[in-house]
Design a protein around this nucleic acid. Structure first.
Lengths: 227, 227
DNA sequence: TTATAATTTAATAATTAGTTAACTTTGGGG
DNA sequence: CCCCAAAGTTAACTAATTATTAAATTATAA
């Protein structure tokens, strides 16, 4: 997933700050949404489900803490990352902020490079939990779901549909054993009925193309990808 | 998962800070590990796989950034949360820190309540993403059902299906004696009929692979797992 | 359409897990 | 302290599962 697939909602009552932050994040390729108060922020968040919400703590009417609390009450927004902005060392808001479900706390004055680093670090966690990443790397193996291609070091390996799907599944959780049943469900689908050996054959192809060592058999249980 | 199931590794060359942080986190019920330098930290982390590592940036020999980089190279430690500790506003280390895979950045001087809030916020994410389920630990034995693997310290032990099932059963209640009859029921199933020695042989395999001392015979009754 | 690639199947081989059997050792009650 | 039922040990055997291959089918693109 390139940066531009990440949506960030910036919320501050001072338009200057919103613009300043937005400018810097846009340069990094993020998609930016903005709001100038808590109410609008909640509206936009519900509609757009951003990946990250940056909330100023001090805002008129509805402050950041309260906004955060209401955001977290939304079922669709419980996984969303929320970072607070505040003036230095207001400890009580920090504690309140984390209590209310914040993921990070950024103190003003904001330095662009530091700010961007923090944003990246936050979003990296989303990637790590790998909701919908299109390029995943394991050691020298790189899987590009968009291009439907696997790289082993420099070598580009084209995989046919089923093989790619199977590989994607296995690599979605390295080390985890996937049962044959589950694999059939995910790769072939519920209704399709194929023999058991079909999986073996596909595994064999992957072993041939990617490398034997990456695919382990757990006899009687299933297969797993390891790197 | 109660707090006490979260393991936190504190790394700082100043013992006072380690103790101070450890004291505060222990009060919250976390399990605390400590190290005074990067090398030890890596050793301990590899063995214990903590949930969170708090790393001082400034340390002699191997600094926090380098330690973090090496930690992240370990396959088992890529999901672990890492937070840096540093003196205020050393921007360049913040950027380097996040680049190298940090999840948070905490500035000294550390205020206990704020620190605890941050730790809670970090671990909240783990819970949400539910990474540490399906792994049970006993001393230095770790059973990962998802991966279908048992770890003894750093050593990875692959067990065949029946052995794994038997071990899972015995370890489901350490210290409890399971009768042969019950074991047969659970591991082999109601209808299957196997000879008496079959259990012994499987126990023997476990003793071979995991260690003699973990499996005790209660003559005339059954077997139990102890650690 | 035709050629090419992808997928599935089926037959067979290879491998590993699980079981048994024969024998030895152990430990608690008489 | 001896006996014997229970548990331990081994290795051979069997069953179950997976690997391999080639051929048959199906989908795809030129």
């Amino acid at each position: 997933m390139s940066n531009s697939n990440f949506k960030i909602l910036l919320v501050d009552d001072e338009p200057d700050i919103v613009e300043f932050l937005g400018y810097n994040l846009k340069k990094e390729g993020y998609t930016i949404l903005t709001a100038n108060n808590g109410k609008d922020a909640i509206e936009i968040a519900k509609k757009e489900i951003p990946h990250l919400i940056v909330l100023d703590v001090m805002m008129p009417d509805m402050d950041g803490i309260e906004t955060c609390r209401e955001l977290r009450e939304q079922k669709n927004l419980q996984e969303v990352l929320i970072a607070f902005l505040t003036a230095r060392s207001e400890d009580y808001t920090q504690i309140a902020g984390f209590e209310v479900g914040a993921d990070d706390y950024i103190t003003k004055p904001i330095k662009p490079r530091v700010f961007i680093s923090r944003v990246k670090a936050l979003l990296r966690r989303l990637q790590a939990n790998n909701i919908s990443e299109s390029v995943i790397e394991f050691g020298n193996i790189r899987i590009d779901k968009e291009k439907h291609v696997v790289y082993k070091g420099e070598l580009e390996i084209a995989l046919p549909k089923k093989e790619f799907k199977l590989f994607s599944l296995l690599s979605s959780k390295p080390g985890k054993v996937f049962t044959r049943e589950f694999i059939l469900d995910q790769v072939w689908g519920d209704e399709v009925v194929v023999g058991d050996r079909t999986i073996d054959v596909h595994i064999r192809k992957l072993r041939e193309k990617i490398g034997d060592d990456y695919f382990k058999t757990v006899k009687g249980v299933g297969y797993k990808f390891e790197f």
